[in-house]
Design a protein around this nucleic acid. Structure first.
Length: 600
RNA sequence: GGGGUGGUAGUUCAGCUGGUUAGAACGCCGGCCUGUCACGCCGGAGGUCGCGGGUUCGAGCCCCGUCCACCCCGCCA
């Protein structure tokens, strides 16, 4: 069986040629005397014609063809008769007149129509993933993914990086996400963890003198799923020695530029703009702002003090904040719609939402608490026009930012402000640690191996950790310490993050102290890294990029499931293979594992 | 763990205030058709209304529970 080329590659220049094709029957139009079949393979579609004048036998047997039958055909390419060309197809000028037809395989009727697979339920699409993947759209996504991976490998290769594999069966670590565990048969009662990332190994590779490491690597996190989160996902992971923050950021920018140019033909301007964590929080309310539209958060504390609205004044009194955004052109919202908005704000933790319509002056239940001049200043600061809606949140800083950033995103979508473009951003100068209310201790904002900023290193080493108790009296001394960490953000999605690492044993020790990790615990969990730091660890740093998210954005998908060949459902189930599943008692016995009936 | 949306024919959906035999389109099966490209025309088959319980003379519709998919919060970098 010979296939001369792809279905989608046939052109007018092939007219007269004898050609063999193989593929799937996409659509069949049976006119009785003449049968048209749209034959599809990875390369595209071409119309093949079964005519009794060319082959009585082939025409006869073509009656029985059905959707997704696999066939091989050979015959002659002819230009389509005048007036029957299909300009909608790249192959639309020609058609293949079939002389011989070979049925390679039949297909059962499909569980969902191939053409409307995008509208089929996600359940069916995932259960019959091989059918979903036959669609050009998903094939395009996977092909784009392949191209991206190749460009990335070439880029890092050209920059002296070495692709090194790190273990999949590794050691469970306490920080960060929940681990997927793998029992060890030969070590009863003991478990490996699947890597959340190769973090420790790549640092050790730096100690080992490999200088530049990279890997496109699968990572695992046993946490709840989202549209942009799967239990297993892929990172572009890299680490380099003797590099500062600027070098790693520049290297990453170069990669992005090359990636978007070579794969999408899109020019990305570098250097990518930067925001400090603080500025990002102040202007957008989060650390991964979507810069494709405005509606920035504005400080209102000073103006709030110029009025007598108690909710605002109380919030400020108790150390909170008052900020606002401009709901562009939304003054037309009804009382009921505003109530819905308020409910949403409450769902995000706010006690309420205050609004002022800019409409024939100022329309609002709270307008009476403010002098006309103050209202005008508010409007001016928010850049309002007639028919705009000022929305205020007064609360603890965290709540104010959280609520307003979510409202901002919702308005961006609702008002259709989001332009179809790629807006990259670096967020830098993160705090080294943040206070975890629940556990009443500091948590590493990035991870525990992140180096403090140069100016803050001595500050940190000098800090008396005993003063950081739950009272929080000196907490800001600690949260003021900046980290040499950086996140790269694209269109409101965090697509990567990295840092310069701690390479000094004493600094790492202090960091563990700060995080409330005891000397013994640290030895137990990260001993091998700590040991390695004793033996001439070079300064080093790196970054990890989420390949799935990056691709999702590149191909314009709304979920990373659309750029992963075999993704899992929100309950972490593979509907196609049926994983996870129960195993034979024998397997469990070998592993010395007994399962508990919970709740039953 | 929590909030939301959905689940009715193979598929996508409609189904009124609880009331006769649960419908449409596509697909499927049979027949006709030589220029279609979502081909067309005629005919036919196809339903555990996700599952379990309850209320009622009567439940696709109301109530309780439960399962599945998706979106979100918590969680996760």
């Amino acid at each position: 069986m010979v296939r001369d080329r792809g279905c989608g590659e046939i052109r007018e220049s092939d007219t007269g040629a004898g050609i063999s094709l193989a593929g799937w029957v996409f659509r069949r139009r049976d006119h009785g005397g003449l049968i048209f079949v749209d034959l599809r393979d990875r390369s595209g579609l071409v119309q093949v014609v079964f005519s009794p004048e060319v082959s009585e036998e082939a025409h006869e047997r073509a009656h029985d063809l059905r959707a997704e039958f696999v066939i091989h055909v050979s015959g002659e390419v002819r230009r389509r008769p005048e007036g029957t060309e299909n300009p909608g197809l790249p192959t639309g000028m020609v058609e293949l007149y079939v002389r011989t037809l070979t049925l390679l395989n039949e297909s059962a009727p499909l569980p969902f129509p191939m053409e409307e697979a995008a509208e089929a339920s996600e359940f069916l699409r995932l259960k019959y993933r091989y059918l979903d993947l036959r669609r050009p759209e998903l094939q395009h996504n996977l092909i784009t993914r392949h191209k991206a991976a190749k460009v990335i490998r070439d880029y890092f290769d050209e920059h002296g990086f070495i692709d090194i594999e790190t273990p999949m069966l590794t050691k469970s670590t306490p920080e960060g996400a929940r681990d997927y565990l793998v029992p060890s048969r030969v070590n009863p009662g003991q478990f490996y963890a699947l890597p959340q990332s190769p973090q420790l190994f790549k640092q050790i590779l730096m100690v080992a003198g490999l200088e530049r490491y990279f890997q496109i690597v699968r990572c695992f996190r046993d946490e709840d799923l989202r549209a942009d989160r799967q239990p297993e996902f892929t990172q572009v992971d890299l680490e380099m020695s003797f590099a500062d923050r600027e070098e790693i950021m520049a290297l990453t920018e170069g990669m992005m530029q090359r990636l978007f140019r070579d794969v999408l033909g899109v020019d990305i301007e570098i250097p990518i703009p930067r925001l400090s964590y603080k500025e990002s929080m102040e202007r957008f309310g989060n650390d991964k702002p979507d810069l494709r539209f405005g509606l920035e958060l504005k400080e209102m504390a000073d103006l709030a003090r110029g009025g007598s609205f108690k909710v605002f004044l109380d919030a400020l009194e108790s150390g909170g904040r008052v900020k606002a955004i401009n709901g562009k052109g939304m003054a037309g919202l009804s009382r009921k719609e505003l109530d819905v908005l308020t409910e949403e704000a409450k769902a995000f933790g706010a006690k309420g939402l205050a609004w002022i319509k800019v409409k024939n002056g100022f329309e609002s239940p709270i307008a009476k608490f403010f002098p006309e001049g103050v209202l005008r200043q508010m409007a001016e600061r928010l850049g309002t026009d007639e028919e705009d809606l000022m929305l205020f949140v007064a609360d603890r800083e965290m709540v104010v930012h959280d609520v307003l950033s979510r409202l901002r995103l919702e308005f961006g979508t609702r008002l259709d402000l989001i332009k179809p473009e790629f807006r990259f951003l670096w967020v830098v100068d993160f705090p080294l640690v943040e206070w975890d209310e629940e556990e009443s201790r500091f948590q590493a904002m990035h991870h525990p191996f992140t180096s403090p900023a140069d100016g803050d290193l001595e500050k940190l080493l000098a800090l008396d950790l005993s003063s950081a108790g739950p009272s929080g009296a000196h907490r800001s001394l600690f949260t003021d310490v900046k980290a040499k960490a950086y996140d790269i953000v694209l269109n409101g999605h965090e697509i990567g993050g990295g840092s310069i690492r701690i390479h000094r044993r004493d600094v790492q020790k202090k960091m563990f102290e700060l995080l409330g990790i005891s000397e013994e615990d640290a030895k137990l969990k990260f001993g091998f890294l700590l040991d390695a730091l004793e033996f001439g660890a070079p300064p080093h740093g790196g970054i990890a990029l989420g390949l799935d998210r990056l691709l999702m954005l590149m191909v314009g998908a709304s979920s990373i499931r659309d750029v992963i060949a075999f993704p899992k459902t929100q309950k972490a189930v593979c509907l196609m293979s049926g994983a996870p599943s129960a195993v034979e008692p024998k397997q469990l016995r070998e592993l010395f594992i007994r399962t508990l009936d919970i709740g039953g």
